[in-house]
Amino acid sequence: MVIYSFYIFDRHTECIYSKTWLPPPPAPGAQPQHDISTSTTGAAVASSDPHHHNPNTLRSSRSAVSAANKASDDAKLIFGTVFSLRNMVRKLGGEDDAFISYRTAQYKLHYYETASNLRFVMLTDTGTLSMRNVMHQIYINLWCEYVVKNPLAPVEHKGGAGVRNELFELGLNQFITGLIGQAGGQR
């Protein structure tokens, strides 16, 4: 079993949590210490003195921005897809029918939706069995416990506020690692 990525969307259709377990594509010339602040100074210098700028700095900042854009575009695309599929499924199969998963040659997408319109999406390899139950467990044991019951977390998670807390991250990591370990042990 391989899990590629995991997304949570709220009832306002916003992506409030995403996590990928894929290694990020190596950016050409990017160095780890080039964070946003150094690259903006780089850009400022470049505009005043075009001969002085370091092309690598610019490129790495651009690729960091484009990676962030790509991630948010991916999330939007995924939401659009699952939302349309879910509506189509309900139209054909009746209000009680649920969209569960689809599979391509490369990956399998699993979908789980709560009655409060929280949507969970997980991308795995094609051979993985249904992850609906896994996502239901994430909802019950991690989301409810660490996000909803955290009295200081906001009710609406605009921009993902309150979701990415330490306990939730830790719990999710442990849970997923445990799953993969189990699946590996059975082989």
Binding site: A115, K149, V155
Partner: peptide, 22 residues
């Protein structure tokens, strides 16, 4: 009202509700 907004998630989790009332 503010309690209810959160309590519903606990209700859904504890009652294992997978579908809406018809």
């Amino acid at each position: 009202y503010n309690i209810g907004l959160r309590l519903i998630e606990d209700y859904l989790a504890k009652s294992n509700t997978m579908r809406r009332c018809s």
